[in-house]
Simulated scan of single mutants.
Amino acid sequence: MTIRTLVWGENIHERINEVVRAVYPDGMHTAIAGALNSRDGIRAETATLQEPEHGLTAERLAATDVLIWWGHKDHGAVDDAIVERVVRRVHEGMGLIVLHSGHFAKIFKRLMGTPCALKWREAGERERIWTVNPGHPIAQGIPENFVLENEEMYGEFFSVPEPLETVFISWFSGGEVFRSGLTWRRGAGNIFYFRPGHETYPTYHNETVQTIIANAVRWAYRPGPAFTALHDAPNVPVDKALEPITERGPKLHQAGEEGYK
């Protein structure tokens, strides 16, 4: 089974900043997708903020098993209707991987229900990433720890809900630590947040980082049809109850009437 993966990139810094363009001449989204396409069982395409409907039409999302999200400069430009469209697909079982500054993306904040705020410093610090859940599928083939020589610091407190699992923790030269690989489930959808990926550094060219993202795609993938029944709230008639019952007392709704939403 090929996992249909869509890598979404804001695609602003690559176009306006010479430093970022030198590191990712074709965009970060293209670099990530290219690395994924070198892995067995994954077929990755890209979409960007500048495309009609941000490249996230209902038809395209319906054909996506896992969505990867990178944004930073203009989270507010993402249309709210598109946010709700993506959230609906995650609830139905589409996997979501949020990278680095995507912690402030509307989609991530909507799914987390919290501010998703953190401390940060842009000083090109060494980041040592520790694998604290070595048995997790996302950590397969990843060493006990690995180093990124230059990265932006993210520090605790990270105001997200308590995760389902913590897979990685980062330490920075300045002394801060950060829960840098976290998982959640929303509806039928698996969500993974992975911290590294500041745009001025070649993080997405790092083979270990690429392996973690590929592992996350496989982990987030949910086989089978979309779980669309999750959105339903059917009124079950008395005569359709699994066991015979007698209707009693006053009620608000007529038989078969839709509930209030």
Score class of each variant (00 low, 15 high):
M1Y: 01
T2K: 10
I3V: 14
T5W: 06
L6D: 13
L6M: 14
W8V: 09
G9A: 13
G9K: 12
E10H: 03
N11A: 09
N11R: 01
V20T: 10
R21V: 00
R21Q: 10
R21S: 07
V23Q: 04
M28I: 15
T30W: 01
G34M: 05
A35E: 03
A35Y: 01
L36Q: 07
N37Q: 12
I42T: 01
T48I: 03
L49S: 06
Q50I: 11
A58F: 00
A58R: 02
E59I: 00
L61N: 13
L67F: 05
L67T: 08
L67W: 07
W69T: 11
G71Y: 00
H72Q: 09
A81M: 01
V86W: 02
V87K: 14
R88G: 13
V90P: 06
H91D: 05
M94T: 13
G95W: 12
L96G: 07
I97P: 09
I97N: 04
H100A: 14
S101D: 06
G102M: 13
A105K: 04
L118W: 11
K119D: 11
E122W: 03
E122L: 02
A123R: 15
R126V: 08
E127K: 14
N133R: 06
G135P: 02
H136F: 13
P137V: 06
I138W: 09
A139Q: 11
N145L: 03
V147L: 07
L148K: 07
E149I: 00
M153Q: 07
F158W: 10
F158V: 05
F158M: 12
S159G: 11
S159I: 07
V160T: 14
P161W: 02
P163M: 06
L164E: 15
V167C: 05
S173N: 05
S173E: 13
V177H: 03
F178G: 02
T183M: 05
R185N: 04
R185M: 06
A188C: 03
F192P: 10
F192I: 01
G197C: 02
G197N: 09
H198T: 12
E199T: 15
Y201R: 04
T203S: 06
N206A: 10
A214N: 11
A216L: 02
A216N: 04
A220M: 09
Y221D: 04
F227S: 14
L230I: 09
D232F: 08
N235D: 15
V238Y: 05
K240R: 10
A241C: 05
A241P: 00
E243W: 04
E243C: 07
E243D: 03
G249M: 02
K251S: 15
L252S: 15
L252I: 06
L252M: 13
A255G: 05
E257C: 03
G259L: 14
K261H: 15
K261E: 14
K261M: 09
